[in-house]
Design a binder for these strands. Structure first.
Length: 638
RNA sequence: GCCGAUGUAGCUCAGCCGGUAGAGCAACUGAUUCGUAAUCAGUAGGUCAGGAGUUCAAAUCUCCUCAUCGGCUCCA
């Protein structure tokens, strides 16, 4: 027998006999670590614990609590689920079943549909499989043998997967637990008995390989954790997240509605929602003027020919609404850029005029497929905080960096974390390769210059240019695109824009499309969830409520209310003949930051007694003191 | 758009195998005048999403449409 050197996780080196399994080696090194190990990393490759080591190697333990460990566990649970489904239902074909961020899924082809009751049955069968403690056994076979095996089983999707592997792949790995065999890269946990906590969550449709031209499969989502406690916590977290759902809070806080009668994907803002939106828009206007933007306004419908000129008619038509005015085709704008182009073109521009930054809170309409509509987050009419910057190629980098800083400032003020993606040329696009390369590298350089961490999103750019996307996460961890910066060489070309350079010659400006918050509707949706409806004082549509203890206190309550109104505090009054506790409860549920209780003490001392939304009492203070406290918070965006 | 589920009072939900609707909260009215998360009593409120069909009879069964929810695809 050969002896080999194994570098253990703590850096020590152990001499072992070749052919020992990872599990044996870990066990002899640290019994405790072996208990919660689900897989291992040998020379940076993920392997099963049963993996035999034949040569000098270094080993890392993948604990079930680690990210890789948890995903191996969840992936193993998905195999168990597939086994249970095949046991229970005839004619099911398995496809793929990976672990995902919060759990796992498995896609099946099955002539009938899975019901919630079926999920219960599947869970029970899974529990049996777990109890049987089947080991996950790996074996390598030639791809020909694998194809033969899955053909015999009628697993046509697996056959397709193997056939689509690159030519150089000669063997594939199979995992077996009990009588269930699956094509799988692994690694898996040692045996089904290690599964302690799992739950199936829901059934959904999903296209085979994510392509809408393919067959619709049935996807069962589930989750799993190392312990029952963690699973219970997760399920509680899901319930809590539902309470923050902006659609629910939008109704409870009386911010907005969507109405069947009026139309899908169209938002009606109620007084408080409209006020919140106005506060945000006022902030936007101020902030843009401060940063050298000009506020402009364009019309809602523009002639069809203009959309043809811009390329929207050819590349964006299916998302647009059209109307006819006296036999002329008009397009309802899905973007704001065209008016801005025409403003630029309204006179001759010198290089001294650039950059020009046109800002518009522009309301656009886009035809979205019915299935994608979602509260405020995905709608058919929305208002963008849109701007188009026209500049020289030399100014591009500075402009992009300034926008990135603008986004960062805004996100800090509103309290969001975000991720950055650079999206490159899509299949359906216009413009030359040269321009695309120029534009893409301009964006990339600016990102590098600002030290932003970003990912590349291949083929996800707009049809006219590449873009930088900033994505916010909502409470359910769904990512929503808000800010975006798009670099465009094409539209200035199509509209034949130019400026006179220092050389007296005509040159072509470059255009940046950009939004900071993106869609105001979507941003408000994410904002509601972020704060669970308890907006910071500066954003709260109602900042304070004046509450009287009895009717005797109404005259002074009225006086306080008046003073606060005059001081531009967003205040309401509740002078109803109800007990104080009742009125406090209502304002509390409405998440009003301050409740000003007016009783005998306040009337006598000419004070107010603010109670904060968190239950804390600030004690008596003069109205002026309260006003300056609120103003101070607003100035600091608190 | 696709797959599945759902649609009953303002909200949350009950209503079995078909016999023309019910609760709690909210609302309204009255009484109560009260100090930091729910005072008591009474009243009113529904073409059961819309349309068609089956039936003596439909919230309930069938079909179509619309909308919502969970996903997929797409996207600010």
């Amino acid at each position: 027998m050969n002896e080999i050197k194994i570098t253990l996780p703590d850096g020590s080196v152990s001499v072992e006999q070749a052919g020992k399994s990872v599990k044996e080696i870990i066990s002899s090194w640290n019994e405790e670590a072996a208990k919660t190990a689900v897989a291992a990393r040998v020379n940076d490759a993920l392997v099963d614990l049963s993996y035999p080591i034949e040569k000098d190697s270094s080993i890392d333990v993948i604990d079930v609590a680690s990210e890789d460990g948890l995903s191996a566990l969840r992936h193993s649970i998905s195999h168990v689920m597939a086994q249970a489904v095949q046991d229970l239902f005839d004619g099911v074909k398995v496809t793929i079943g990976p672990s995902i961020e919060d759990g796992f899924y498995y896609d099946f082809e099955y002539e009938n549909t899975f019901t919630p009751e079926d999920l219960d049955r599947i869970e029970k069968r899974m529990a049996d499989i777990v109890a049987a403690d089947h080991p996950f056994e790996r074996r390598e076979v030639s791809r020909q043998d694998a194809v033969k095996l899955f053909e015999e089983k009628g697993e046509t999707y697996k056959v397709e997967l193997i056939n689509d592997l690159p030519q150089e792949v000669k063997t594939v790995s199979l995992y077996t637990q009990g009588d269930f065999i699956d094509l799988c890269r692994g690694p898996h946990i040692p045996s089904t008995g290690m599964i302690k906590a799992f739950k199936l969550l829901n059934v959904a449709g999903a296209y085979w390989r994510g392509d809408e031209r393919n067959k619709m499969l049935q996807r069962i989502y589930g989750t799993g954790f190392a312990t029952r406690e963690e699973l219970a916590d997760y399920l509680i977290m899901i319930e809590e997240a539902k309470k923050r759902d902006h659609r629910r809070l939008g109704r409870e806080l009386d911010l907005f509605q969507v109405n069947d009668e009026l139309g899908a994907g169209l938002i009606i803002f109620h007084p408080k929602g409209a006020l919140l939106r106005t506060i945000i828009e006022d902030w936007e206007r101020k902030e843009h003027l401060k940063r050298g933007y000009d506020i402009v306004l364009g019309p809602q419908i523009l002639k069809g020919d203009l959309w043809k000129k811009s390329g929207h008619f050819d590349h964006y038509r299916e998302n647009m609404y059209f109307t006819e005015v006296e036999d002329q085709l008009y397009g309802i704008k899905p973007m704001n850029c065209l008016s801005h182009m025409l403003i630029y073109k309204s006179r001759i521009r010198s290089y001294r005029d650039l950059p020009l930054r046109y800002f518009e809170l522009g309301t656009v309409h886009r035809h979205e497929k019915t299935g994608v509509l979602h509260g405020l987050l995905r709608v058919r009419q929305f208002t963008q905080d849109d701007a188009h910057i026209l500049c020289t190629p030399e100014q591009l980098n500075d402009e992009i960096r300034a926008i990135a800083e603008f986004v960062d400032d805004a996100m800090k003020i509103f309290g969001f974390e975000y991720e950055v993606e650079l999206s490159t040329r899509p299949e359906k696009s216009i413009g030359s390769d040269e321009d695309w390369n120029l534009a893409t590298s301009a964006l990339e350089h600016a990102l590098k210059d600002t030290d932003m961490v970003y990912e590349i999103n291949e083929g996800d750019g707009a049809f006219y240019g590449p873009k930088i996307d900033f994505k916010l996460k909502d409470v359910l961890k769904r990512k929503w695109q808000c800010a975006t910066i798009q670099c465009d060489f094409t539209l200035p070309e199509r509209f034949d824009l130019h400026y006179v350079g220092p050389d007296g010659e005509r040159h072509r400006p470059v255009m940046l499309h950009r939004v900071i918050l993106g869609s105001i509707e979507r941003f408000i949706g994410v904002l509601i969830e972020q704060y669970a409806g308890a907006f910071p004082v500066w954003l709260s549509p109602v900042q304070a409520v004046v509450l009287t203890v009895t009717d005797n206190h109404i005259p002074y309550g009225e006086e306080v209310y008046r003073q606060l109104m005059d001081a531009d505090i967003r205040v309401q009054r509740d002078f109803r003949n109800e007990k104080l506790g009742y009125k406090i409860r209502e304002s509390q549920i409405q998440k009003v930051p301050y409740m000003l209780v007016i009783g005998d003490k306040e009337v006598d001392a000419k004070t107010v007694a603010p109670r904060q939304r968190d239950g804390q009492n600030l004690g008596p203070m003069g109205v002026e003191a309260f006003v300056s406290m609120v103003r101070d918070k607003c100035e600091k965006f608190e």
